[in-house]
């Protein structure tokens, strides 16, 4: 038995022809804020459903709090807090009724769990008589988190908790997660957003049902295998097209106001790449480009790890 809060070993799950999870393995430590990062369809939700005993894995094994997800499912269910990706509380019940229902299902009361949920619940408490379906997205999310926490779980699973929530509420929500983590709660959270991934202790990059890399978010880029430079210049779009045609171009993506250029010669000094590329750009008629060697970030890694280019908001 492992000391990890979550231990997943070689888990696979398929739905008919689709392989939703393939040989997924990772461990999340006690008290850790662990992130699963990946685009839609990466397998994050399926993994959550396996860990919360909602689905049986086809292959491999997994333990949560040292309990097997297949054998000890009732023990797990009593100690886990789960917030599914979709809002799934009772819209025709009030805020207070929802909360007290979920408390009583676990044999407890709102009062007993109040100090834990207070920082979150206090913000919606004045609406306690309002029907849940009349709440705004941010308030629904706070209610859902309160309902997942009211029985004082030992571990919290949050499946894309900030989807459909405005930017301010998102940031607040992550502040609350950090507060909860400081109280010793283990949190496993999935997100499609890179900025949220940065706020986790460690993240696992997921794509196509596989885990690509597991590292603290700040270190994810350290294993970037190729030299990388940032390019800025006028007429960004033409510059992008032109750089993609450079003789050793591996990948060129727009990142904010810059372009990130990856060279396909591993081990080459990025400074050398920068000066080489400067000459190339001048030759193509881009006189004013500024090119600097940079260290890869989590987004660069993600782009690199993913087999096909994805749309990203910039």
């Amino acid at each position: 038995m492992s000391n990890a809060a979550v231990a997943v070993r070689g888990v696979g799950k398929r739905f008919g022809e689709t392989e939703a999870l393939t040989d997924v393995s990772f461990e999340a430590r006690h008290g850790e804020l662990f992130g699963l990062v990946g685009p839609d369809g990466a397998g994050k939700t399926t993994l959550f459903r396996v860990l919360t005993t909602f689905l049986l894995p086809d292959a491999g094994s997994a333990t949560v709090l040292g309990l097997d997800v297949v054998r000890d499912l009732w023990a797990i269910r009593a100690r886990v807090g789960y917030m599914p990706g979709r809002f799934s509380l009772y819209g025709d019940l009030t805020v207070a009724e929802n909360l007290s229902f979920f408390a009583s299902v676990f044999g407890t009361t709102i009062e007993e769990g109040y100090d834990l949920i207070a920082p979150i619940y206090r913000q919606i408490e004045s609406f306690s008589g309002r029907r849940a379906d009349a709440l705004s997205g941010g308030m629904k999310q706070k209610l859902a988190l309160s309902c997942a926490l009211v029985h004082r779980p030992d571990i919290l699973f949050l499946d894309e908790p900030t989807t459909g929530v405005d930017a301010v509420s998102r940031s607040e929500f992550w502040d609350q997660l950090h507060t909860l983590r400081e109280s010793g709660l283990t949190i496993v959270v999935s997100t499609p957003y890179m900025d949220e991934a940065m706020r986790c202790d460690r993240v696992a990059l997921m794509q196509g049902g596989r885990i690509l890399e597991i590292d603290p978010p700040g270190e994810i880029g350290s294993r970037y295998p190729l030299p990388l430079v940032a390019v800025t210049g006028a007429d960004r779009y033409r510059l992008l097209l032109s750089l993609r045609k450079a003789p050793h171009a591996h990948a060129v993506y727009p990142f904010g106001s810059e372009l990130h250029y990856t060279d396909n010669r591993a081990g080459l000094d990025p400074g050398e790449v920068a000066s080489e590329l400067r000459d190339y750009a001048r030759g193509q008629g881009f006189g004013d480009v500024e090119i600097t060697a940079i260290a890869a970030g989590i987004e660069d890694s993600f782009m690199e790890l993913m087999p096909a280019p994805v749309q990203r908001a910039s």
Binding site: R49, F54, P84, R86, S88, Y90, V105
Partner: peptide
Amino acid sequence: ELGTLEQLNVTPI
């Protein structure tokens, strides 16, 4: 449809 069944299935019910 509401997804509440999924939520309930992760409780000791």
